[in-house]
Computed example of a mutant assay.
Amino acid sequence: MSWPEPITLKGEHASLVPLSVSHEAELAAAADDGEVWRLWYTNVPSRDDMLMEIERRLEEHRSGRMLPFTVLDADGIPAGMTTYMNIDAKSPRLEIGSTWYAKRVQRTGLNTQCKRLMLEHAFDVLGCIAVEFRTSSFNRASRRAIERIGAKPDGILRHHSRHRNGTLRDTCVYSILESEWPAVKVHLDAMLKSYAC
Rank of each mutant, 00 (worst) to 15 (best):
residue 137 S to P: 01
residue 156 I to G: 11
residue 131 V to L: 05
residue 150 G to L: 02
residue 161 S to Q: 14
residue 127 G to S: 10
residue 149 I to A: 01
residue 156 I to F: 15
residue 126 L to S: 12
residue 149 I to Y: 03
residue 150 G to K: 04
residue 125 V to C: 06
residue 149 I to M: 09
residue 124 D to N: 14
residue 125 V to Q: 13
residue 158 R to H: 13
residue 128 C to M: 06
residue 131 V to R: 04
residue 124 D to Q: 15
residue 137 S to I: 05
residue 138 F to S: 04
residue 149 I to Q: 03
residue 155 G to D: 10
residue 162 R to F: 13
residue 124 D to F: 07
residue 131 V to A: 09
residue 139 N to H: 04
residue 157 L to M: 15
residue 160 H to M: 10
residue 142 S to D: 01
residue 132 E to M: 09
residue 138 F to N: 05
residue 130 A to N: 07
residue 164 R to F: 13
residue 148 R to S: 09
residue 149 I to F: 10
residue 132 E to V: 11
residue 127 G to A: 10
residue 154 D to N: 13
residue 147 E to C: 01
residue 158 R to M: 13
residue 126 L to A: 12
residue 132 E to R: 10
residue 150 G to E: 05
residue 141 A to V: 03
residue 161 S to C: 14
residue 151 A to I: 05
residue 152 K to V: 13
residue 128 C to K: 05
residue 153 P to K: 06
residue 147 E to F: 06
residue 163 H to D: 12
residue 133 F to R: 02
residue 152 K to I: 08
residue 143 R to N: 05
residue 130 A to T: 05
residue 126 L to H: 12
residue 148 R to Q: 08
residue 155 G to R: 09
residue 139 N to F: 01
residue 135 T to A: 10
residue 154 D to C: 11
residue 156 I to M: 13
residue 141 A to T: 07
residue 162 R to D: 09
residue 156 I to H: 12
residue 146 I to N: 04
residue 145 A to T: 04
residue 137 S to R: 05
residue 124 D to V: 12
residue 125 V to N: 11
residue 154 D to T: 06
residue 148 R to D: 07
residue 152 K to D: 11
residue 164 R to M: 15
residue 149 I to E: 03
residue 129 I to G: 10
residue 136 S to W: 00
residue 127 G to C: 08
residue 148 R to W: 01
residue 162 R to G: 08
residue 150 G to N: 03
residue 150 G to M: 07
residue 129 I to A: 04
residue 153 P to L: 10
residue 141 A to I: 05
residue 124 D to S: 14
residue 162 R to M: 15
residue 123 F to T: 06
residue 155 G to W: 04
residue 144 R to W: 05
residue 145 A to F: 02
residue 124 D to I: 10
residue 151 A to T: 06
residue 149 I to S: 02
residue 160 H to S: 15
residue 142 S to Y: 04
residue 154 D to E: 13
residue 145 A to D: 00
residue 126 L to P: 00
residue 157 L to I: 14
residue 154 D to R: 12
residue 144 R to E: 06
residue 162 R to Y: 13
residue 136 S to M: 02
residue 125 V to P: 05
residue 145 A to W: 00
residue 151 A to N: 08
residue 130 A to S: 14
residue 132 E to D: 03
residue 142 S to W: 03
residue 153 P to D: 06
residue 154 D to M: 11
residue 136 S to K: 00
residue 132 E to G: 01
residue 160 H to C: 11
residue 142 S to P: 00
residue 140 R to A: 05
residue 144 R to P: 00
residue 131 V to Q: 03
residue 161 S to M: 15
residue 157 L to K: 14
residue 138 F to L: 08
residue 142 S to N: 01
residue 135 T to Q: 03
